[in-house]
């Protein structure tokens, strides 16, 4: 049996690993910066070379923070969805949030072609991408929340979310068909996901959303535990099903919506990290699982980003591909060993 003591050890190990990978992440890349200079750059504000300072403060530090926020946030929203739908295959995007964001961005990038030339290019700036993606996922969120007020059955909500996804994917496909190669490439680059090029304002907004979503998630942990027995049992123990469903979907939408807006649709982390975490934390108590999943998600995302920026080379690989390349074998290995996928 695992005790609180064991969990504490795990948490300490995770925190140390996170710090180590965080420093390694900032140190490695096309320009390699020694670790002690990284520490100086972050805390003292002055590395010995001006360019290093610039790279750390304006590029790598924001990117590392985005990786931590995005990885942790997506992983926690995956955990919430798996418990809410009592389905080990659920992830943060089952409600169609990422397809909503994709539609928003597709309309902006591919639709901007219709305005042509100057106006079209002016529309597609960094912030307009964020706004389009946020508006897209927000509209899908509104639709899903309206559905949750009308439909009682969570499985029905799950299927409706999938249907939203299909419809938006179809619209994106039609838009792509009528677009020129250049616009299409721009859209595809967005869909690769990107943790870099974040402004500090963006990071502050993203952090606020992440903290808000996580607070709602932690506040719902008792209800989440009750849902592990099924809705009828949960209700017989005094749980308000509709209120709880609403809170959980709201938390997921804030987390996954904001992250997708800033970093693009990052697949896989939300689905896989809760399962990886459960292999180490043998508990179903969400009060332990939420912080554990948060740390594991951040750690995995930082590792993936370190790989994606290809140390000692000038190229950066799409993060969306790396998360799957790194994560999928881990999940397959765990499942082959355990022969069971439980939640």
């Amino acid at each position: 049996m695992q005790t609180t003591q064991t969990y504490r050890v795990f948490f300490v190990v995770l925190l140390i690993a996170l710090l180590a990978v965080f420093l390694a992440n900032i140190s490695l890349g096309s320009v390699s910066i020694p670790i002690d200079e990284v520490v100086k750059g972050i805390f003292g504000g002055n590395a010995s070379k001006g360019t290093w300072n610039y790279i750390i403060i304006d590029y790598r530090l924001p990117k590392a923070i985005t990786a931590i926020l995005a990885g942790g946030g997506l992983a926690v929203s995956g955990l919430l969805m798996q418990t809410l739908f009592r389905n080990p295959l659920a992830g943060p995007f089952v409600l169609g949030l990422s397809s909503g964001a994709s539609l928003g961005v597709a309309l902006l990038i591919l639709g901007a072609g219709a305005f042509g030339g100057f106006l079209g290019n002016a529309l597609v700036s960094e912030w307009s991408l964020v706004i389009a993606s946020a508006v897209g996922s927000f509209l899908v969120l509104l639709a899903v929340l309206m559905v949750t007020f009308r439909v009682k059955d969570t499985m029905a909500i799950l299927i409706i979310g999938l249907m939203f996804g299909s419809v938006t994917a179809a619209v994106v496909a039609v838009l792509s068909y009528f677009s020129n190669a250049e616009k299409l490439q721009q859209y595809i680059f967005w869909s690769f996901g990107s943790l870099g090029n974040q402004s500090w304002e963006g990071i502050i907004i993203l952090s606020c959303c992440a903290v808000l979503g996580l607070l709602i998630a932690v506040a719902s942990s008792k209800s989440l535990n009750a849902l592990l027995l099924g809705e009828n049992y949960a209700k017989s123990m005094g749980l308000h099903i509709k209120r709880t469903t609403f809170a959980i979907i709201l938390a997921t939408s804030i987390l996954a919506g904001a992250i997708t807006a800033f970093a693009g649709p990052i697949a896989f982390v939300g689905l896989a990290v809760p399962h990886i975490t459960r292999q180490f934390f043998k508990t179903s108590n969400h009060l332990v699982l939420i912080p554990a999943v948060l740390l594991c998600g951040s750690l995995l995302m930082l590792v993936c980003d370190t790989i994606a920026q290809l140390p000692f080379s000038e190229h950066t690989l799409p993060i969306n591909a790396i998360t799957s390349l790194v994560g999928a074998p881990v999940v397959i290995w765990l499942l082959v060993r355990k022969r069971k996928l439980l939640f």
């Binding site: 418990t83 592990l228 027995l229 099924g230 049992y233 017989s236």
Partner: peptide, 16 residues
């Protein structure tokens, strides 16, 4: 006041 034992098994079998 009332507790129940239902025919349905718990949704998560991973609970101890």
């Amino acid at each position: 006041q009332i507790s129940v034992v239902l025919t349905e098994p718990p949704a998560s079998k991973n609970l101890t």
